[in-house]
Design a protein around this nucleic acid. Sequence first.
DNA 1: TATGAATGAGGCTTCATTCAT
DNA 2: TATGAATGAAGCCTCATTCAT
Lengths: 217, 217, 217, 217
Amino acid sequence: MAQRSTAEASPWIPFEDRRRARDAKREAVLRTAVQLFLDQGYHRATLDEVARLLNITKPALYNYFRSKEEILFECFSLGQELIDNRIAQINAEAETGLIKLQKLIRGCVAVNTSEFGMCLMRLDDREFSSERRSLVRAGKKRVDSAFRLYIAKGIADGTIMPGDPKLAALAVAGSVSWISFWFQSSGTFSRETIADAMVKLLTEGLAARRKPGARSK
Amino acid sequence: MAQRSTAEASPWIPFEDRRRARDAKREAVLRTAVQLFLDQGYHRATLDEVARLLNITKPALYNYFRSKEEILFECFSLGQELIDNRIAQINAEAETGLIKLQKLIRGCVAVNTSEFGMCLMRLDDREFSSERRSLVRAGKKRVDSAFRLYIAKGIADGTIMPGDPKLAALAVAGSVSWISFWFQSSGTFSRETIADAMVKLLTEGLAARRKPGARSK
Amino acid sequence: MAQRSTAEASPWIPFEDRRRARDAKREAVLRTAVQLFLDQGYHRATLDEVARLLNITKPALYNYFRSKEEILFECFSLGQELIDNRIAQINAEAETGLIKLQKLIRGCVAVNTSEFGMCLMRLDDREFSSERRSLVRAGKKRVDSAFRLYIAKGIADGTIMPGDPKLAALAVAGSVSWISFWFQSSGTFSRETIADAMVKLLTEGLAARRKPGARSK
Amino acid sequence: MAQRSTAEASPWIPFEDRRRARDAKREAVLRTAVQLFLDQGYHRATLDEVARLLNITKPALYNYFRSKEEILFECFSLGQELIDNRIAQINAEAETGLIKLQKLIRGCVAVNTSEFGMCLMRLDDREFSSERRSLVRAGKKRVDSAFRLYIAKGIADGTIMPGDPKLAALAVAGSVSWISFWFQSSGTFSRETIADAMVKLLTEGLAARRKPGARSK
DNA sequence: TATGAATGAGGCTTCATTCAT
DNA sequence: TATGAATGAAGCCTCATTCAT
């Protein structure tokens, strides 16, 4: 990987190079597109503008993607991949339900403050053909299921207070999903700060502990 | 409302009637439009379809609204009015910060499960001209400020744990905003159930209280 | 239908008028389109040009038709209707197979020298969605079947020489179909002349009768 | 073709080889293209697809042809060459008009059931620039003239019944041209069967000979 | 007030063709 | 000779909006 010096020795290198160049351009398209989609919304963003930002013409985009919808789908997929990886890693670890949930919250903060994660959370999956929509919804279901599973596990192992795991999952997912709507990388809160606050609030709640065990209505 | 019998006596009554009829039609348009906007998204929803559902024709809509954007704006305004009213009422009461926050959460659950509330939360305010967008954003800011204010007040009066009110407000607002994305009136959870769960979770947190004062990482 | 004087008496008259006006415009679109399709071919003919010839703009066409394909389909349908009517009439008469065949030949000459008939015969039905293509092909099959049926009937009743009705039908249909490719209403041959020649040639053949019953190889 | 062993001896051979290879590739392109043109129609057939079927890329086609139109033109030319050859041969023989006509019919059956012949008959020559269109039309005129000439000759030598040679030529040409629209090499009728049927029908006609000299209307 | 008709603006997509390598 | 990439031209279609009636 380091020996660029063998470049002339192998006919594969230029081939590899070209593939890499192609992939790099695909990526560039996706990065430009996702920014535009987030900035202006999917419908207001035009492929003409995407192309213009890349200094190419609109039909050139069709060398890399078959349609505007496919571009959006790839953005969604990249976002989904980020969160799927997080979940896979958490699943692989032996931890209490609460710890897993906290890790998932942190994972979601990280993902939902990234461009592709924001795209996944904010843009409407009704843009998609039914086939792709199914895939997208399956992905979202995986995240929701992870939330529920960890909460249920936490209830079982005594680290989480009893309650309906579905509603709890929706509440937690809401807090972290919403981040994708307001987060700005140039804003006052760092990802770390946000993650800490979300974990603390969602685990401990807002209410002060006046006396141990006291309940607010 | 009762004096229908005096209709012929006053030339003003029919005038009034006509105004009322006009308002009724305006409302019907908004109710139909908001459903379509939620069902299909603002861009995919066409005025033709709105008109078709009302058994009128598209140009007839222009008797009541100047543009598609205006229809959307009125939908937003109705949603905003709902939440503004809730806030005004809560502001008027003398309560602890925590109680006020809990009431606001319940208010948001109610509003965000209503059609106009869902419209306000889910649809993109970048559809609007800058003037209207300012109004919309001012409205959203009022809600956010209420959250922050109540939390700050709660911290001051000792009912809420210390912390950054901005982040706490965003977390709470996220949970309740997200409801507008997943709530279905035909679904398994009633508004009451949802409100109770949100209040409990956001005030007490998810973590079990193993020993008074114990902290989860 | 004549009493324009009752116009004010009936609210239906203007309604009728408007429907008529609409139908007239639909027809005008079809007449213009079919000419362009024949002149330039379906692909080279643009809706812009159709609209231009009608002194309207392209989107106005969409008030009357949903797509370019639908316009073509309607042209096909009008042509098919012409020939179906001829066949229905011939079917209704009691005649020998040969007479029926001759009448069908004359019918085809009439239809295939009309604009919509030429459209039906000359343009490619692969433009259509599979559903419409099925309809078109069913129509073409009806004509082919009529040819075969009359020939078979003629063979049975002794008015037509024995032979394979399928091949004979294809030969006859070929001669008359081909007319749609070369006929010009401004040309040297009248429809009547063409019909007579086709009937004579296809029934009697080209070979001279040197001696009664003599056969050319 | 035999002296492969002298390859190194002469610098001309590889040159010849290369030319031959080039011609072979040109031919392969034409064979692939004509099939696609027939299968899908000229406009729906794309050069991308032609290239794909040949396992090359689209720009490679431009090494052999200057444009899509040129490819089509060469297909036409190959078809025209086939029929021109037939006509030349028939012209060279001393036969009655009727015999020549019958030979031409058989020739047309052979040509119009071949791929390039089908291309010539079915595809629209309005694709071409005016220059090429003139060439194509001249070719078609040669065939038409042959039909007319043989018929006129037959009338003169008493082997063909008197009548307008133009119309008779069109009728006969129609039957045989139409074959290119319905013939399938995998179908039920062999070329031989078709040729026999066409010759018989067009020479003798369909009508039974009830009494020598009897005429049907 | 309501309608049918029409328009203008704009977007997505396709494809033959060219160019640098 | 062959390729990947890019382009320009063009076409279809949608839809909010306007206009005459």
